[in-house]
Nucleic acid binder design. Structure first.
Lengths: 231, 231
DNA sequence: CGCATGGTTGAGAGGTCTCAAGAAAGGTGG
DNA sequence: CCACCTTTCTTGAGACCTCTCAACCATGCG
């Protein structure tokens, strides 16, 4: 149950998202739509093919890019939210051992395989979106390398809130966090148990409120202070 | 003292490097050279401007991309070695808070600001090189998130050896590692002290030999086993 | 010789992990 | 609507990895 917040995050979340990276004209949107193809649904847990598959937009649901070590340890590289483009650049595509996994039931829209968006504004917006994703990976490196569990969690929660806000999936400081703590652990480079303790601590400190998968940021200044990273 | 190994890593290391990402014709090299400009030298520790400066190739010396937290903690995102391109994509350029720092005395060659390599093979090679750098950042995320100090070190040493081998800066399993342990610490998300202990341990285990800044990988199978990451 | 820099080592503190068990929540069939 | 089962969350206890502080050693250089 992905719940109500999906109202206007329907088929066009990628437009909302791309628009943030450059204003479009009607013709741009037409060119974009012309190259988009079939819509597909996947269940949570499904492995999405990256190599040998056309690029796609996420319409609804959460996914992630991840890499696993031989002994089963897994590191999530990035979260993919509705509106995000997946596999358009060879930066993400065809990286050894990187898999895309559906974290919730997913709806995606595939692009034609030889995707070449016409015009000039459209490619620029794609590049900007790729740069934004790259920037988030940089944040991820800093989190994992130099921040404590508490700081990492604060920083990630702020990132997710900001990204969800872009596509209208927040109500004030409140949003739906549809992932298990195990997933947060794999993203933050922590153990499941320590993720739990960290969340409990933040709750006790009054920074967040959590009921089920409903997350509310109660004290943004404190969260920002904790997350440091001037971003 | 960067020492002898620089012989044929001189002015053209970037050609060697780009050639790995696609074979060139004479005309491609000509087009490339035509857009390259002045050579500049910087002392170790110098901050290289990324925004507002033209992109460049590293000719000699090591640099890194890094981001700092307010309290002084610093995380190195990537090492830049001779032949590496810096600032060509907006993926690296114009990321908030990312600085490029010379780790040794540096020689760089700037490109014209509006760099637009002609032809078709050249841009493809640039894209492939960018993808390779992106792949290394993914490795970095996995190292920091899911590997122990010992594993991180093994993995990084193998990465550096492989990259230096591409430009002829290794002799067998031996290479020059011109950076302080403090720098390794900032790259691996560890404390200086623990980097030292980890290196000592690897030496005791017979995996490496270290004399000054001379590094030799004595037991590659063991290093690969320790570094896991199927890369 | 004396200083500065970088490397090495010890000791104790602290953050995070693992193992293990119990509580809560959600779904299913009767 | 309840009993049951599975999944997910929560909590405790002890071990382990890594950090900090602090000192000492090695090297290079003026």
């Amino acid at each position: 149950m992905l719940g109500a917040p999906l109202q206007w995050t329907g088929e066009r979340s990628y437009v909302v998202r791309l628009r943030r990276h450059g204003v479009f004209q009607e013709e741009d949107l037409a060119a974009l739509e012309a190259q988009l193809g079939r819509v597909e649904s996947y269940p949570a847990g499904k492995d999405l093919a990256l190599v040998g598959a056309p690029p796609m937009f996420l319409l609804a649901g959460w996914a992630c890019l991840a890499r696993s070590l031989r002994d089963g340890r897994r590191q999530i590289l990035a979260f993919l939210l509705p509106g995000d483009a997946v596999g358009f650049d060879l930066l993400t595509r065809s990286q050894r051992g990187v898999e895309a996994v559906a974290l919730t039931p997913l709806k995606v829209r595939y692009a034609q395989s030889g995707f070449t968006a016409g015009g000039e504004r459209l490619p620029r917006a794609f590049a900007a979106a790729a740069a934004a994703q790259h920037g988030r990976m940089i944040d991820q490196i800093v989190r994992l390398g130099r921040q404590t569990a508490y700081e990492r969690m604060a920083h990630l929660l702020l990132e997710l809130h900001a990204r969800l806000a872009e596509i209208g999936e927040v109500r004030g400081e409140h949003f739906h966090l549809p992932i298990k703590q195990e997933i947060l652990a794999d993203a933050l480079g922590l153990s499941l148990v320590h993720v739990n303790r960290t969340l409990q601590q933040m709750r006790r400190d009054g920074l967040i409120d959590m009921r089920g998968s409903q997350m509310t940021l109660l004290d943004r200044p404190a969260l920002e202070a904790a997350s440091d990273q001037s971003s």
